[in-house]
Computed example of a mutant assay.
Amino acid sequence: MKRWLRQRVDDAYEQLLSREISGAPTHVAVIQDGNRRYARQQGDDAPQGHRDGAKTTERVLEWCQDVGVEELTLYTFSTENFDRPDEENEELFDLLCEKLHEFADADRVHDNEVRIRAIGAVERLPERVRDAVEYADRRTQEYDRFVLNIALAYGGRSQLLEAVQGVADDVDAGTLEPDEIDVETIENRLYERPVRDVDLIIRTGGDERTSNFLPWHANGNEAAVFFCTPYWPEFSKTDFLRGIRTYESREESWRRTRARRAMALLGAVGDTELTEAQSVVERFRDSLPTAEQPDPDELDGVDASQLENVDSSGRAAN
């Protein structure tokens, strides 16, 4: 009876969260932690924990598509994982091969035009895994409605180091001038194909750290982070929706902060900065509590030309 009642409560809470969510992040990155601890808790070995976790991965892919997420990155195998016992890694590599082929051939992947690709030092992986990666990439290369990134042999710090070394080599060779180096210069050297900025990082398993995961795309974008205690095989749709709600709260807080800063600038800056501040307040006025909202008459005179310094997301240009 208790299990039945708990399920009813969980279902009701999931429905409530679904109704509360009004938007979704574009790019969600997930640290799938806790497979091995879950297996030990169940009296199983680590490979069984990875298999149970793979089922959760399939469900999360569906949940992302349900709420409107456009890109999902899964931290599947880090560079540090090479230090684990060979027999455990070999079974995990077998599972990766199996799932990559399964995903690449699945009707739901092709019906939803899911692009599957790997990021990381894939060349360090066994040949059978590299072949599976290439197969999934080739089978889905024409799609772009949804992107699924599998982070394999991945380490964010090493990726950044390699990108910077590439820039230094180009400068040394005379093919790149120092004053030409910008954000795009680094991004083009991080991955073979573009990765969107991360809006939300989810980590399961109870640890509250991001473990060197997508530092350029997450930290630079001030991504929201949601830590939760369930091990990855236990991760539920309710947990997922709570993560989405964390992102929405983070975005709303950012909008309020932006509007308040702009309000504070209105009486203390020159004409150029004043125009920008007025534009920001106009766009984000509804994010402020009613008592803090300025009178619309105070913002009269802001025409379309004055909005040129604010991009489509509402962030003022530097």
Rank of each mutant, 00 (worst) to 15 (best):
R3H: 13
R3A: 13
V9S: 10
Y13F: 12
L17G: 08
I21S: 04
T26E: 14
V28I: 15
A29V: 03
G34R: 01
R37K: 10
G43V: 05
D44P: 05
A46Y: 01
Q48A: 10
H50Y: 01
R51V: 06
R51S: 06
G53A: 09
G53T: 06
R59Q: 15
L72A: 04
L72M: 10
L72E: 01
F82E: 02
D86F: 09
D86Q: 13
E88S: 04
N89V: 15
E90V: 01
E91W: 03
L92F: 03
L95F: 00
L96S: 00
E98H: 13
L100A: 01
H101Q: 09
E102V: 03
D105E: 14
A106D: 13
A106Y: 04
R108L: 10
R108D: 13
V109F: 07
V109T: 12
H110D: 14
E113T: 13
E113V: 12
V114A: 07
I116G: 01
R117G: 05
I119N: 03
V122A: 13
R124N: 15
P126F: 03
D131W: 06
E142H: 14
Y143L: 08
R145D: 15
F146G: 06
V147Q: 04
L148C: 09
A151L: 02
L152Q: 00
G155H: 01
G155E: 04
Q159H: 14
L161C: 08
E162A: 07
Q165T: 12
G166Q: 10
V167A: 01
A168S: 12
D169Q: 11
D172H: 11
D172L: 10
A173D: 12
T175F: 06
T175P: 05
D179M: 13
V183D: 09
E187A: 15
E187H: 08
V195E: 09
R196D: 12
R196H: 12
L200K: 00
I201K: 02
R203H: 13
E208R: 14
S211D: 07
S211T: 04
F213E: 00
F213G: 00
L214D: 05
L214P: 00
W216L: 08
W216G: 02
A218E: 06
A218Y: 04
N219T: 15
G220A: 10
A223N: 03
V225C: 07
Y231Q: 03
W232D: 00
W232I: 00
E234I: 12
K237N: 11
F240Q: 01
L241T: 08
I244L: 08
Y247Q: 00
S249N: 14
R256V: 11
A262Q: 02
A264W: 07
L266Y: 07
G267L: 11
A268W: 09
D271W: 09
L274R: 08
T275F: 01
S279F: 00
S279L: 02
S279E: 10
R283L: 15
R283V: 14
E292R: 11
Q293M: 11
E298V: 09
L299A: 05
D300H: 15
D300P: 09
D303Y: 13
D303H: 15
S305L: 10
S305A: 10
V310W: 09
S313R: 14
